[in-house]
Design a protein around this nucleic acid. Sequence first.
DNA 1: GAGAAACCTATACGAAAGAATAGGCCGCTA
DNA 2: TAGCGGCCTATTCTTTCGTATAGGTTTCTC
Lengths: 222, 222
Amino acid sequence: MQTIQSSRQPPLTVVSEVPRLAAMRVLIADDHDLVREALAAFLKTEGVIEVLTVPTLDEALRVADESGSFDLVLLDYNMPGMNGLDGLPRMIAANDRRPVAILSGTASRALAEQAIQAGAAGFVPKTMSSRSMVSAVRFMAAGEIYAPYSFMQKADNGTGTLSQRETDVLRGLCEGKSNKEIARDLDLQEVTIKLHVKTLSRKLNARNRTHAAMIAREMNLI
Amino acid sequence: MQTIQSSRQPPLTVVSEVPRLAAMRVLIADDHDLVREALAAFLKTEGVIEVLTVPTLDEALRVADESGSFDLVLLDYNMPGMNGLDGLPRMIAANDRRPVAILSGTASRALAEQAIQAGAAGFVPKTMSSRSMVSAVRFMAAGEIYAPYSFMQKADNGTGTLSQRETDVLRGLCEGKSNKEIARDLDLQEVTIKLHVKTLSRKLNARNRTHAAMIAREMNLI
DNA sequence: GAGAAACCTATACGAAAGAATAGGCCGCTA
DNA sequence: TAGCGGCCTATTCTTTCGTATAGGTTTCTC
């Protein structure tokens, strides 16, 4: 799996630029015991001196608060306390604005973009091999932005073409709201919502609002 | 984490009944590289001689077909080819009706019950510690049925109270179908579907079909 | 300044969903 | 056997959704 990165560094010289035996402090927050233990084990064999693991966001925040900031924090996207990407800015603050990356089981380009937009140091799908993952960790700890090349290349399923309003309306849909309610919330007319529902349904290839909501859920667009 | 098992064996004598150093053959199918490698590593240190890992259901079926059946197959629920629990019976057949268990990132009682109902040898959430997981594997390979005790104890959120028909209708909802379409699929009248939609929405605490579908998705009831 | 694109509104109509009420069928159990 | 619960149907009605057509504004770009 190749990597894509910010333009600050030339792509092929990454590994050599990061000191191989630097004493890194990494915090892993994931509610899956197995993932935590595996990642910690791999990182330790790769020269990351200190690896702490916690099962929830709250504990991650607490640990960062008590024991000082980390060179990198890995946050599982689906995890108690995260609530989507809401937990990300809190963790970044708790880590003194040093790198915090999102770890996720479901690889979605939309989610990756959102995460990085929200200030994440990167996006790491769990489908990655452990070797690649160790490289990614090293990379992000050095201050670079990481995202797997493969699915950043994926053709847009019309996903990225959702406008701001359409996204707002879609959020309402996913909460099971009626057009009228969404209109009230967004301070718009009901007809306008109908319009957005129609266009976003077309873009998502959905046959109706319910289908659109499910697809959005599936693609992590909410 | 405690375990619950079928009544064939007394609960507390499990481990001693399973030969500790038996040469077990285990197949792990999971699209998360990290999970695969971690599980394989732990099992190997615990005396499971042969551990094969594959990233998709199709490869799992092929391997079982070519290299003979396994003492236990672990199938990730969210994995290419699985399509819900559809892949389970196929894997069971391919494994000569020997134990096949479901591995899942999201721990849901409903899903666990469904899996075991569908013939799974057990249900293993990834939130389990690796030690417990190794025990579970050993347990299931011996022919017992395993499910974590903790969330089999969880109070039913009205979840279990969904009738068969309501579940059928809910599935249709989640696919974005109209009442008419669902009626045709189930060979019923449209009014009947409306009835079921209303009652299942009430049970799920949803305000309409879209909301019901989202809740179902959230709770892995589909 | 023309054009494109996102955005908002209006009117109108048929289709679908949702709610209420009423009844019949079956299987289980007190 | 009477009652209960799941299941299916019917009728009627209101609300909501979905679609179409036809405008309008702003903002950005060529």
